[in-house]
Amino acid sequence: MQSIVVLAGGVGGAKFVGGLVGELARRHPDASDRPAVKVIVNTGDDMWLTGLRVCPDLDSIMYALAGVNDAERGWGRAGESSRVSGELAAYGVGWPWFTLGDLDLGTHIARTALLRDGLTLTEATARLGARWHAGAGLPATLLPMSDDPVETHVRVTIDGDDALLHFEEWWVRLRAGIPAREFVQVGVESARPTPEVLAAVAAADLVLLAPSNPVVSIGTILGVPGMREALAAAPAPIVGVSPIIAGAAVRGMADSCLAAIGVETSALGVAGHYGARSTGGVLDAWLVAEEDAAAVPQVHALGIRSAAVPLWMRDAATSTALAGAALDAAGRQ
């Protein structure tokens, strides 16, 4: 095995990719023998804020792989301060409920400068990743799902009126407290996967779907025209990891997102939502939690191989163990 591709977004994706990198290092102590990891990252959460291009999922995964993420909060940089955000709020600029730390702002300023200089988001992401580990770079290659801007918005009803909010406003400010009527990927119709993304999928020996939000993370990646077709044609097995354990989202509010699109919040429900590759979906295999072992034969009935394994990623050890289970599941194809 020479190359592994992961579709990921958010904190769950960051933990899983970190576990995968750790497990591959354990299995292949010689770095020259280690499979390359390429992560196709959701950019639907991206936005322009205070004149800066902010890419939450790209940054969460970058910080985690660099070892500088805030593990307690689950997002942002460790050891942060927020003096600049305080000044912006005093000027009435930006979103006061969406606090960007000072170190984090350095990332957004650098990214915006690179984009203004004419680099694509893929090129800018590579430049940002190259600074870590004393210039050796990250242990995985981060690939934005598209260089074309796609932003997830949420249609809701507020005081009887129709409103279309950026996903981060619905997620962070409102805490998904207002039911979502629809998710709208603004700009997705004209977006395309990058050449780097298509080449990575075509050359992969294994494709993994991280336990990220199936609607606004993995779902947004799959919604880019051409992405599903690339996966359908991929020679590699595609193994997904359930983000649902015992009928509840592992993290965040994926249950609210699934309810909005009429999908049951269960490991079986999400497996059916992704579908079997043999019938036009994207999955060859699906890992469910030990708590959901009863769903394994039902997933098999969908045409998707399945196994029940420990899914909780509580620390580095459990994250690497889960990644190992995903690698082993691919070997059973």
Results as ranks from 00 to 15, higher is better:
Val6Glu: 06
Pro310Gln: 08
Arg27Gln: 14
Leu302Thr: 09
Gly106Phe: 09
Trp48Lys: 14
Pro144Gln: 01
Cys55Asp: 02
Ala14Lys: 07
His133Ala: 09
Asp255Trp: 04
Arg305Met: 05
Asp30Thr: 11
Pro310Leu: 08
Pro56Gln: 04
Gly223Pro: 06
His133Gly: 06
Ile244Cys: 05
Gly94Thr: 09
Gly12Phe: 03
Cys257Pro: 03
Val270Tyr: 00
Thr320Asp: 10
Tyr274Arg: 06
His166Val: 00
Gln2Cys: 14
Gln2Pro: 15
Trp132Ser: 01
Ile4Tyr: 07
Glu123Lys: 02
Asp284Pro: 03
Gly44His: 04
Val186Ala: 15
Met62Arg: 13
Asp328Asn: 12
Asp161Val: 10
His153Asp: 05
Tyr63Arg: 08
Ala317His: 11
Ser319Tyr: 09
Arg251Ile: 06
Thr194Ala: 08
Tyr91Arg: 15
Val216Asp: 01
Ala330Gln: 03
Ala236Arg: 02
Ala163Thr: 00
Val186Asn: 13
Ala230Asn: 05
Glu189Asp: 15
Asp255Asn: 04
Leu121Thr: 00
Asp205Asn: 13
Val41Ser: 10
Arg251Gly: 04
Leu115Tyr: 03
Val150His: 02
Arg251Met: 06
Glu123Trp: 01
His28Cys: 14
Pro297Tyr: 07
Gly22Gln: 13
Asp33Asn: 15
Asn69Trp: 14
Gly187Ile: 07
Ala317Ile: 11
Asp59Pro: 04
Gln185Gly: 14
Ser278Pro: 08
Asp205Ala: 09
Ala260Thr: 01
Gly137Thr: 02
Trp48Gly: 15
Arg53Pro: 03
Ala249Phe: 04
Gly67Leu: 13
Asp328Val: 10
Ile178Ser: 07
Leu222Met: 10
Leu103Trp: 12
Ser242Leu: 05
Leu198Ser: 11
Ala233Met: 09
His300Cys: 14
Met313Gln: 13
Asp161Lys: 15
Leu143Thr: 05
Ala180Ser: 07
Gly160Trp: 04
Val150Trp: 01
Val263Arg: 04
Asp161Ser: 14
Ala246Tyr: 05
Tyr91Met: 15
Arg228Trp: 02
Arg173Glu: 07
Asp59Gly: 06
Ala267Lys: 00
Ala234Gln: 00
Leu58His: 03
Val17Tyr: 08
Asp162Arg: 14
Lys15Cys: 09
Glu169Arg: 03
Met227Lys: 04
Ala180Leu: 01
Leu88Met: 13
Leu138Ser: 02
Asn42Trp: 05
Glu80Gly: 12
Ile218Met: 12
Ala317Leu: 13
Thr43Pro: 03
Pro179Tyr: 09
Ser146Val: 03
Val241Ala: 01
Asp292His: 07
Asp57Met: 06
Ile218Gly: 08
Gly275Ile: 01
Asp59Thr: 05
Ala230Thr: 05
Ala330Ile: 01
Ala203Leu: 08
Gln185Val: 10
Cys257Lys: 00
Leu7Trp: 08
Ser242Val: 03
Lys15Ala: 11
Ala90Ser: 13
Gly44Phe: 02
